[in-house]
Every structure is written in structure tokens, then in C-alpha cells.
Design a protein around this nucleic acid. Structure first.
Lengths: 142, 142
DNA sequence: CGCAATTAAATTGTGTACAATGTAATTGTA
DNA sequence: TACAATTACATTGTACACAATTTAATTGCG
């Protein structure tokens, strides 16, 4: 039997998985400076943009479930960057909102994307292709 | 100040991270059939190809360190798919090799890549572009 | 040779991920 | 309007992932 399909270099998933991890590892020094992990960072990115969101909304945007988000959000709360309170109109919903401290953090985070861009040595066109293809894949996997 | 750079949709890392996770989640039903996790699966892929490898070599190929690999390999050993023994010539090296049971598993795994290909709705050309760009990125990050 | 430096794995500690399950609030319908 | 179904979040259990440290073996240099 021909087992070539089982070779790592014939898989599309593997370089995706490895790339994702390696890039996140490169974020670490920059994120350490502002005392966030990558998961905490992407959660804050939504909240900086929206001011507030439910756990459900965060999960949909970030492709994460409450099992992952609950401890992440509790951690962000303990650091003082967010507040967690139940909705008055529907107590099932937990509303997460940015504190003043969390807004200040945004100032210190704004330099990170530029620093990271320097780590990814892609041509502008390649980056655009990659971006388009990845979002196409994500779109197919809803 | 303009905070657009901090928007999730302006990041390249995020769709990479989300795509990687979503695809691996789609592997799960197929991998469940052969009682492997994704990490165990990619470790077995190297070993099916090479017959044997050290933890160091596996780590280099898979972008994983011993802190991740040691428990994964112990698990594969407990399932009977691999053997772990120290090298005779250099006892620092741990040599991981496939058992007969592990080789049999290969037969059952060989259908998985095809099943997964059906889950990724990309044109052939897009898949090739994606592949090329991802390996370029990985190459830059050595 | 002798011993400091290096190397390979294992261990420890923290933080995700996610499936499965539990709990409480809300909705829809007979 | 009861109450079954649904929904949102939390909890539990398993499995990574990685930085930092530890341990043991090997290498290289004076």
C-alpha cells in the first residue's frame, strides 16, 4: 500500500498548526510586557472594540467555548482589566465590559501589531492571499 | 489615537489560530475511530515514516518540546503503538520506535487524509498557495 | 585526565482547549 | 399557565503547550 498521504509534508493541517503555534510563541515577549497571554489578548481586542460583550458573543467571535473563556475572563477580571456581571434583563447572559484600567492597557498594546508584523517575512501580496484563504476556510467551517 | 491595528480582523495570526483549531476539531471524529489525539497522530506520522526517532528529532519535526512530547509518547507506549528505550551509544537519547501494533494502526489511519480533504473546501490552486506560504513562514521562523 | 560546559529528557507550574455534564434562567407550546 | 425544551454559563476531566528548572550523560578544553 502507498502511505504517502500519511506523510506530514503532504498535509495542509500540519503547517497551519505549526505556524499558528510559532507565531503565538513570537507574540509572547511582547505580550509579557503588558502581562497578557495570547488568549487574554484576543479577548481584550474584542472588548476594546465593543466596550462590552457577552461570553456567548466572545465565544462566537473567538471560536472558543465557555469552558475556555470562563477561566480566561476570571483571570482578566482579577487583573482589573474587565468586569463581569449578569444581565438585568436575562440573567443567563454574563456581560463582560472593559474597566478604565483595561482601557489604559490599550495604549500599551497598540504597538504590538507593528512589532509582530516585523516577525512575519511575507510579501504584501502573500499576506493578502493567506488572509483571504484562511477566512474562506473559516467561512466554510461554520 | 487610531486603534484599528488592534482589531481582530486586521490580524493575520488570528485566522491562522482559529483555522488550525477548527480543522483539528474536525479531525477528532476520524481520530477517535483509531483512538488517537491529533498530537499523537502527528507523532505517529513521523514514526510510520521513519520507523524510529529520538524525542529530539520528533520535537524538531513537530515543533514540540520534551515537556509536551514526554507525556504524549508515554501515552502511545501505554497503548502499545510505540516502544521507548534509551540509546546504547548515548544514554541521553531516548529512541522511540513503532511496534507491530503501531504498524497495524497505519492501515486504519491511511483513509483519514482523504476524509479530511473533503472537509476543506479550497480550490486546488488555493491549497497550493496556502501550503507554500505557510512553509515559507515556518522557514523564516527557524 | 579532570572538570566545566553542553546536551537530551523529564519534571513542574501555569494556561489554554474542548467534550460532556450540570445548573439556573427563559421560552415556547399544549 | 404548567412544564418540557432551549439557552447561557460554569464545572469536570483529559490532553496538550511551553517556559523554567532539574537530572543525568557526554563533550570539550586546559
Amino acid at each position: 500500500m502507498n502511505y504517502d498521504v500519511l506523510k506530514l509534508e503532504n498535509q495542509l493541517c500540519f503547517p497551519l498548526y505549526a505556524c499558528s503555534k510559532e507565531i503565538i510563541r513570537r507574540y509572547k515577549p511582547f505580550l509579557d510586557d503588558i502581562d497578557l497571554t495570547y488568549t487574554q489578548y484576543i479577548a481584550m481586542m474584542i472588548l476594546w472594540e465593543e466596550e462590552q460583550a457577552t461570553v456567548k458573543e466572545l465565544g462566537t467571535r473567538l471560536y472558543l467555548d465557555s469552558g475556555t473563556l470562563t477561566p480566561v475572563l476570571k483571570k482578566l477580571e482579577s487583573k482589573g482589566y474587565i468586569e463581569r456581571k449578569r444581565s438585568d434583563t436575562d440573567e443567563r447572559n454574563l456581560i463582560v465590559s472593559v474597566t478604565d484600567e483595561g482601557k489604559k492597557l490599550r495604549e500599551r498594546a497598540v504597538c504590538i501589531p507593528e512589532k509582530m508584523a516585523g516577525c512575519v517575512n511575507l510579501e504584501k501580496e502573500e499576506a493578502e492571499q493567506l488572509y483571504r484563504i484562511l477566512y474562506k476556510m473559516l467561512g466554510c467551517m461554520e
